[in-house]
Amino acid sequence: MSQNGIVLVASVSIFSDDKVLIIRENKPAAVNKWNFPGGRIEYGEDILYSARREVKEETGLDVNLICHYWYI
């Protein structure tokens, strides 16, 4: 979702025991950079739906989310 140059994104941290899931990006601007699964929230899309969608697209995993919101 973008309005007045602001882009909203969802980022997901996935923990299992003592491990954290990160992905290696393949987008031209970030090739081989490591990141948490995430991406843009589409217009009208629920934040949690967006977060689950991005994880599925980038990892193939279906996840249940525990939400923590941070506002900057």
Rank of each mutant, 00 (worst) to 15 (best):
E54M: 08
L48V: 10
V20C: 11
S11L: 09
W70H: 11
S13Y: 04
R24W: 11
V9G: 03
Y43P: 13
R24H: 11
G5L: 06
I22Q: 11
V55A: 02
Y49L: 07
G39Y: 01
L65A: 00
D17K: 14
K56T: 08
E57F: 11
W34V: 14
A30L: 15
I22P: 01
A10M: 04
A29P: 06
V9F: 11
R52E: 11
N64Q: 10
G5T: 08
L61C: 13
G44D: 06
P28C: 10
M1Y: 07
I6E: 09
K27L: 10
L48S: 03
W34K: 12
I66P: 00
Y69S: 10
I47D: 00
A51T: 05
L8C: 03
P28H: 07
R53K: 14
I23W: 03
Y43F: 13
L8N: 02
N64D: 10
K27I: 04
G38I: 06
T59P: 01
V9E: 07
P37V: 06
V7T: 15
V55R: 01
D18H: 15
I66M: 12
D18S: 15
V55C: 03
E58C: 03
V63N: 02
V7A: 15
N64Y: 06
T59V: 05
F36C: 06
N26M: 12
R24P: 09
I14H: 00
R40W: 06
A29L: 15
M1G: 09
R53E: 11
E58A: 05
V31E: 11
I23E: 03
L8A: 02
S2M: 03
F15W: 14
Q3L: 07
E57P: 04
E45Y: 05
I6K: 12
G38S: 05
D62I: 07
S50P: 01
D46V: 11
Y71E: 09
I47Q: 00
K33I: 10
E45K: 00
G60E: 02
D17Q: 14
A29G: 09
V20M: 12
S11P: 01
N4Y: 05
I47R: 01
E58F: 01
L65Y: 01
A29V: 12
G5Y: 05
L8D: 01
F36N: 04
S50L: 03
E58P: 01
K56S: 13
F15K: 12
F15I: 13
Y49D: 07
G39S: 02
E42H: 06
I47Y: 02
V12K: 00
N35D: 13
R53T: 09
V12F: 00
G39K: 01
I66G: 04
S50I: 05
I14N: 02
S11N: 13
G39A: 02
E45M: 05
E57Y: 12
Y69G: 11
I47A: 02
R40Y: 09
K33F: 14
L48F: 08
I47P: 00
I22W: 03
L61S: 08
I41A: 02
V63W: 03
L65F: 04
